[in-house]
Design a protein around this nucleic acid. Structure first.
Lengths: 211, 211, 211, 211
DNA sequence: TATGAATGAGACTTCATTCAT
DNA sequence: AATGAATGAAGTCTCATTCAT
């Protein structure tokens, strides 16, 4: 009895309530497809196969629902195993990271989060700031830490590792990301991504490999 | 009446009607500040100091007005004199271009166009594609042409000049653009922009200077 | 041409715009019948024969529309010619006033304003206070002034004329107002109103006539 | 388990179920504070520390719950010992009654019931009528009976004792009740109440004391 | 041409009520 | 008996667009 009782404890808003997940899944799709303003709570309800009212049982309002999705996105990003083990050699590490990163951005419906948040950052600066800090800046920092370790070990010669990290990430997007988000080109092929990341790595190391 | 009628024969959509300009100016401000969905025709009318009805005299609907602004933006971008004279040496040219480019993106209210279009690219793919082609891709191509000339002259050693052009542009944004659009940082200082562009140029030349 | 031009000056929100009046008329009926919460903007639009949107062209929101009606009510009340000419003798003046007052309160749909405001006074104290000051207190004061004049002239002997004014008004409601607003009785007959007002006057003078 | 089943055989609508009381107490507070429309079943559930579902176990719907509260209010009013012992002298009786009555109306959150019912009397006439009959009219009648006794004993000279009773009650409200419910003034002080009731009594006796 | 009044579809949100447990 | 999750109808308000002048 003591043990089984927990089954009956339906704590709503429990981070993992199945309905909550269901809503988040539906909402993410709609938000990412249509943007914050373009997405209507009605559409979201339909996508999540819930009544409109239920949406409000789990989330205070449209904005809270949107932020919950970004939160999830942040967690996901954090869990993507960028292997920044300092023991790994720079070239391999950068290439692996670059591929994983560009995959994340250019996956179908991929740059969506970044784009959607960007769109409302002016009207809702807090949302924008938070997203930047929790998702983008975090990754930069992790890469930056890795670089610092290799600077310390004499592998690399870098003055400003934060800048360098950011540079590498930008390099990986070259010719891929913008055409993709503007729908000027379909998602890039694996081969193209590899080419671009390889080129980025070459350029990065040409500039920062310790002499 | 027959005679006087000619007075009424103004060709409305004459590209440079002063009213039209007035509307475009007001509308740009509102669209860029609030995004496509956030901007209301009422607000635009107020900003342009015109009645709401007049908006529809000059533009079929909100979308057409928005596209007209992007058109204008494209023209403006084209007119920004990026000095790509093949006779100039690469380092100077890249640094000048880089600074001008990052200025454009990070000017107050700056990444606005790019951001605003990005936001609706999924719902209005044509708008996105057209903007990419007329504004972003065009600049890439002009830089790419410049690079090709220097490859031909033996100055630079580059396989894929389109990629290289894109890479340089991305490098210039490193640590500047994303914090700016997400409002995680204020517009960067002149000095910081110069530093970043210099670093980008160094890296670019380290990789692509002909040996 | 010079003269006729004024016809074309549609200044919206002009206090007497015909549409505005039309809306106020429809809205009053609905508000008074159903109360503030019971009245829906849709219902009001129907009653006023306007679109729902038009309501919001003339009034910022439901609350503003409601207050506009109270304003009107206040004006109306002020215009009801309670003849408080100090030259008139007390008995006649009180009887005339009493009848006019109770008529106002018990007219079909009559105590509605007072009742409707009372209902929301707790949630919207400002509205309540303003209504009290502009309508109820004002009438008390006018009667009180009249009484003071007759105290001065030696006709009446009253210590607290404000209290006395309020007492007379309350007396006039005896057996009439509460049954009416609670729908426990139909609107009272002319004869009954006269009886009650006469009785009130008698009682008032019995207490306050100078000896 | 078989044995324990009897535990489940509570007769629900038992007038004094403790849960029922608990609900009524919470509901009264919310209804009186926010009015019928302003009160939500959710808020009531919270105030009563009961689940929303439980509300519907004890009461068919919001309206029934509201009426149950009025019922309670009626009982309470009936229990307030207005001492109408015919043996008591008129002046003392009236003063005592007047003070008790005005206390009831102007107690913090006081005119609430009367106001709340008034608010919905038009939409729910039955509720209004019943409340008037069970609470207001009842008190009038009790006072009227008292007056009749004193008329019979030759103490007072009154034609229409129902009217007279109503008059006295209205007099007691003079300058107190309306400012209070419209929040134009705080609850009156003890002294002020005494003054007003004394004045009402004087006026009443001046008119109705047998000569 | 230019206006501004008017519209109606549709957005977000609340809430009384039901139902499975 | 008691719960709380779920619903859908209905409410307030916004806004792109039309139309008579």
């Amino acid at each position: 009895m003591v043990v089984a009782a927990s089954e009956h404890l339906h704590v709503i808003q429990e981070e993992d309530s199945s309905k909550r997940r269901q809503i988040l899944d539906g909402a993410r799709k709609v938000f990412m497809d249509l943007g914050f303003d373009g997405a209507s709570m009605g559409e979201i309800a339909r996508a999540a196969q819930v009544s409109k009212g239920t949406l409000y049982v789990y989330f205070a309002d449209k904005c809270a629902l949107f932020e919950a999705i970004l939160e999830q996105e942040a967690l996901q990003h954090g869990q993507v195993v960028f292997n920044f083990d300092p023991a790994r050699d720079a070239e391999t590490t950068l290439k692996d990271f670059g591929r994983a990163y560009i995959h994340l951005l250019c996956r179908p419906g991929g740059g969506s989060a970044i784009r959607t948040v960007m769109a409302i950052a002016e009207r809702m600066p807090d949302v924008g700031r938070r997203y930047y800090a929790r998702v983008l800046d975090k990754t930069i920092n992790r890469l930056s830490e890795y670089l610092k370790a290799h600077v310390a070990s004499g592998d690399l010669g870098i003055d400003d590792c934060d800048l360098a990290a950011s540079q590498f990430m930008e390099l990986c997007k070259a010719s891929l990301f913008l055409p993709f988000v503007f729908q000027a080109a379909p998602a890039p092929s694996e081969q193209r991504m590899t080419e671009v990341v390889d080129s980025a790595t070459r350029m990065f190391l040409a500039a920062y490999r310790a002499k």
